[in-house]
Structure formats: C-alpha cells, structure tokens
C-alpha cells in the first residue's frame, strides 16, 4: 500500500512551549490509523498542522505525493483532507441539511453537480442515520447526533483522508458502539481514517496501526498489540 499522508519531522512551538518535536509518521491509503497519547501530548496540535489550521515551524507534509506544507486549510480540504472537531462546531444558523451543503458546494466543488447537492446531502444523512433530523437546527440535536453531524459534514467534503478528533469523547458505551460502525463503514468505502481517541476500547478495536505521542514526541508506533505491550507507552500513561 502506498503512503497517502507523510508527516516528515514536523515541529511546532507555541512561544517557548515545544508542542511537537520532529514527529514523523506515514498513513497508508485505505488504512485505519489510531493516534493516542496522554492529555496535552500534542495530538490535536498535530491534527491542526495536518489540516492546515496551524502552520508548522519545521518539517514537511506530503499528501498524495504533493507537498502541502504551505497550503491554506481550504485547499487541503479540496485535495481530500477533512477533519471533524473535538467540540462540534456546526453552522448554527443553518439546518442540518444545509450544514452539509457547505462542504458539498465548496470542498467538493466540481465533483457534485449543483442540482444534486441536496440529494447528495440527504444520502449522507441517511448513511449516518440523521435523515429524520435534516430540517432540525444543530441547537436542537442531542449530543450523539451532534457528533454524527460533525462526521456527516466532514463526509460531505468527499475526503480521502478523514481525521476524526475524539468523535466519541463523552459518549456512553452504547453510543460509542453506535459511532464505531459508522467509521468502519466509511473506511470500507475507501476512506482512510485517522482516529484520535481516549477511549482505548474503541481505538484498539478500530485501528490497524497506532502511533503514540507523549510530550510532543512520537514514542511508539505499531499494531495495537505491539503498542500496548510497549514499555515506553506504559510509562507515559501510568508513570514509573
């Protein structure tokens, strides 16, 4: 399998704080990739660097063989990188359906004919089990539906790489079991997925490979089994 995304030696500083130091990893086409690490280890910062919300202070990002290090976020989305937010950020003045029309009209511009935008959005909502709420406002959604909307909107951008930033944080075990199959289904449709998660049960079940960040450095990478038996990982999570 070829590499879809290559992160080469990415470094990010916030003033005197080193958030990421020389992080390298490779995500292959079609892969389910897990990214874990204790709080403050730099997971979301790395995602922000990959999606373009933050610039990097060093290193390169290569997506589908193209250097994207200097591209603004919206152009990366058009190339096929889309992320969902840890705390859902819906477009509050729009209905659930209209929320999906924005990425369909912008990120997927040219891929979806104008007349098909609404039906395409409805199709995605159905896939997510949100079709009954199409005309609702985001403010009227439950917590889990809000997470589904966040994923649905990212899907509408027609990504090749979907970055799911803690899509399941704060959900009950039953709700986690409702979101996981959705992510599996998306992966089966050929979408590469990077999952950032604190819920170990979910990441372990979902990921084919996992990278572990601690204090801005990658300390381990491998299959879920390899990662859990890694001494450094154990130390990062549990201390000496």
């Amino acid at each position: 399998m070829a590499a879809l995304l290559e992160v080469r030696g990415v470094t990010k500083r916030f003033g005197g704080f080193q958030a990421l130091s020389d992080v390298s990893l490779e995500v292959r086409e079609g892969e389910r990739f897990g990214l874990i690490g204790p709080n403050g280890s730099g997971k979301t910062t790395l995602i922000n660097c990959i999606s373009g919300a933050l610039g990097t202070d060093g290193g390169t990002l290569v997506f589908r063989g193209k250097d994207i290090t200097r591209l603004p976020a919206h152009q990366r989305t058009r190339l096929g990188i889309c992320r969902s937010f840890q705390i859902p950020r819906p477009f509050t003045s729009m209905t659930v359906l209209e929320n999906l029309c924005i990425p369909l009209e912008y990120a997927a511009h040219g891929q979806v004919p104008r007349s098909a935008v609404a039906s395409e959005a409805m199709e995605i909502l159905r896939l997510m089990g949100l079709d009954a709420k199409a005309q609702a406002r985001p403010a009227d959604l439950t917590g889990i539906d809000m997470r589904k909307l966040e994923l649905a909107r990212a899907m509408a951008a027609k990504p090749r790489l979907l970055i799911s930033d803690e899509a399941m944080a704060g959900l009950s075990p039953a709700e986690v079991d409702a979101i996981l199959p959705i992510l599996f289904a998306l992966n089966e449709r050929g979408i590469t997925i990077i999952m950032i998660e604190h819920i170990m049960r979910a990441v372990m079940r979902f990921s084919q490979r996992i990278a572990v960040l601690d204090a801005g450095e990658k300390i381990a990478e491998g299959t879920p089994e390899e990662v859990v038996s890694n001494k450094r990982v154990e130390k990062a999570y549990l201390g000496e």
Binding site: P72, H74, T77, F91, S93, I102, E105, Y106, A107, H109
Partner: peptide, 23 residues
Amino acid sequence: RVGRGLAAIRDNEEAAECMGVPT
C-alpha cells in the same frame, strides 16, 4: 454560493475553512 459561504464564516470561521470555504 458566495452568500452561503459567508454565512458559514459568520457561524464558525474555522469550521468553514475546514469545509473548503476560502474564508
């Protein structure tokens, strides 16, 4: 389409940019 893009910016600029809107 421009107007819908502007509305997305008003609602959440960062999310708009991530959805491909050239903010």
